[in-house]
Amino acid sequence: MKRHSSRPSAGPEEHGAPEPHDLGLSHDLPTLLNRRHAIGLLSVGGLVAALAACSPGTASADPTGDGGGSAPGDDVAQSDSGDGEIPEETNGPFPADGTNGPNALTTTGVVRSDITTSFGDSSGTAEGIPLTFSLTVVDVSGEGDAGTPVAGAAVYAWHCDRDGQYSMYDITDQNYLRGVQEADADGTVTFTSIFPACYPGRWPHIHFEVYPSLDDATSATGRMRTSQLALPQDVSEAVYATEGYEQSVANLRDVSLDSDMVFSDGYALQMARVSGSVSQGYTATLRVPV
């Protein structure tokens, strides 16, 4: 488990028109090129090989609500196809972790499992198809280590709303869809939320940061890892066919995992396993090796 002592500035994400706080490609490119496939991407041959390896992810889900879905024991099996630590990613232009404007982490009430509502001095509820997502933090630093649960670690998670907007930035009077949880004895944190939109240029995703402890998280210090969770295409399509997500239909059609600025160089460790249905809501799980 590698501890990152410095906190990078927020990098840009494709999100419609450029934001005034977007730091530009010159900031984001070093972050992306530092990922595990960077060496291969520096050559044309490496680029072709990387793109060929990025076939669309699959999900054990039942979009129609007919009773299918993954078996209970399969919850965090998505990372069986990948080795090593989950990649370090940009935290985007809307982190609200103090690196780019507002800081939700030091706000009273941010420690919670249900992030559909705003907290502190804000009020409001994000609408959308219910999504419960769990992240299991495991330490894989030992040689041949399959992963030891990191009990007591803390995770800060955030994502856009049904309209593709981020609280505290696009919607300045709300801070919903942001929250911190402390990992249990199994290294797992769970958040109750809504399914995020697909906005222009980005694959459907959820941001998260891992901290050594709850105290570290709520003081915005000692960050260990910043990464992103990818949501499967078939589930996303089922959600986006419902009322309120209309703009996501075209946005998803115009982007792919191969073209996404974050997932294009591989997503085996970031693709969540999802089960559920539109009518009953979805459950997503991701193993987070650090």
Results as ranks from 00 to 15, higher is better:
residue 98 G to R: 10
residue 140 V to A: 04
residue 58 T to M: 14
residue 271 M to Y: 02
residue 244 G to P: 00
residue 162 R to A: 14
residue 212 P to R: 12
residue 177 L to Q: 11
residue 94 F to N: 12
residue 33 L to D: 08
residue 18 P to I: 04
residue 120 G to E: 07
residue 112 R to C: 01
residue 64 T to K: 15
residue 29 L to W: 08
residue 92 G to T: 09
residue 83 D to W: 03
residue 23 L to E: 11
residue 57 G to Q: 03
residue 104 A to I: 10
residue 31 T to P: 03
residue 172 T to W: 10
residue 35 R to Q: 14
residue 164 G to H: 06
residue 184 D to R: 09
residue 71 A to C: 11
residue 165 Q to N: 13
residue 224 M to S: 13
residue 148 T to E: 13
residue 27 H to C: 02
residue 75 D to Y: 06
residue 138 V to L: 01
residue 8 P to N: 01
residue 138 V to Q: 05
residue 184 D to N: 15
residue 21 H to G: 03
residue 170 D to N: 14
residue 14 E to C: 04
residue 128 G to M: 04
residue 81 S to I: 05
residue 125 T to F: 00
residue 239 V to H: 00
residue 244 G to Q: 01
residue 147 G to E: 08
residue 128 G to H: 03
residue 198 C to W: 10
residue 105 L to V: 11
residue 54 C to G: 03
residue 241 A to M: 03
residue 283 T to N: 09
residue 122 S to I: 07
residue 78 Q to N: 11
residue 109 G to P: 11
residue 237 E to C: 00
residue 275 S to N: 05
residue 172 T to Q: 15
residue 2 K to C: 07
residue 10 A to C: 05
residue 162 R to V: 14
residue 134 S to E: 06
residue 34 N to H: 09
residue 247 Q to N: 13
residue 45 G to S: 12
residue 146 A to H: 06
residue 19 E to S: 06
residue 77 A to W: 03
residue 105 L to K: 11
residue 52 A to N: 12
residue 235 V to I: 09
residue 5 S to D: 08
residue 242 T to P: 07
residue 180 V to R: 06
residue 244 G to R: 01
residue 102 P to W: 04
residue 221 T to H: 07
residue 45 G to I: 01
residue 191 F to K: 11
residue 192 T to G: 01
residue 160 C to G: 12
residue 41 L to E: 11
residue 214 L to P: 09
residue 166 Y to H: 14
residue 196 P to N: 08
residue 250 A to S: 15
residue 44 V to D: 10
residue 205 H to C: 09
residue 146 A to N: 13
residue 57 G to S: 15
residue 14 E to L: 05
residue 169 Y to N: 14
residue 225 R to V: 09
residue 246 E to A: 12
residue 44 V to T: 13
residue 143 E to P: 08
residue 265 D to S: 12
residue 185 A to R: 12
residue 101 G to E: 06
residue 213 S to E: 09
residue 82 G to D: 07
residue 159 H to Y: 03
residue 105 L to E: 05
residue 197 A to V: 05
residue 172 T to G: 10
residue 131 L to E: 01
residue 64 T to C: 07
residue 29 L to M: 06
residue 81 S to Q: 04
residue 26 S to R: 12
residue 236 S to K: 07
residue 152 G to D: 07
residue 51 L to G: 05
residue 92 G to S: 02
residue 109 G to I: 10
residue 243 E to C: 04
residue 11 G to Q: 07
residue 26 S to A: 14
residue 257 L to T: 06
residue 207 H to F: 04
residue 142 G to P: 04
residue 182 E to K: 15
residue 219 S to Q: 15
residue 51 L to N: 05
residue 264 S to C: 12
residue 113 S to I: 00
residue 98 G to W: 04
residue 143 E to A: 12
residue 31 T to W: 02
residue 195 F to S: 11
residue 198 C to Y: 02
residue 185 A to L: 14
residue 113 S to R: 03
residue 135 L to C: 02
residue 23 L to I: 08
residue 144 G to Y: 02
residue 176 Y to D: 09
residue 67 G to T: 13
residue 148 T to I: 14
residue 253 R to I: 01
residue 96 A to S: 15
residue 267 Y to N: 07
residue 179 G to T: 10
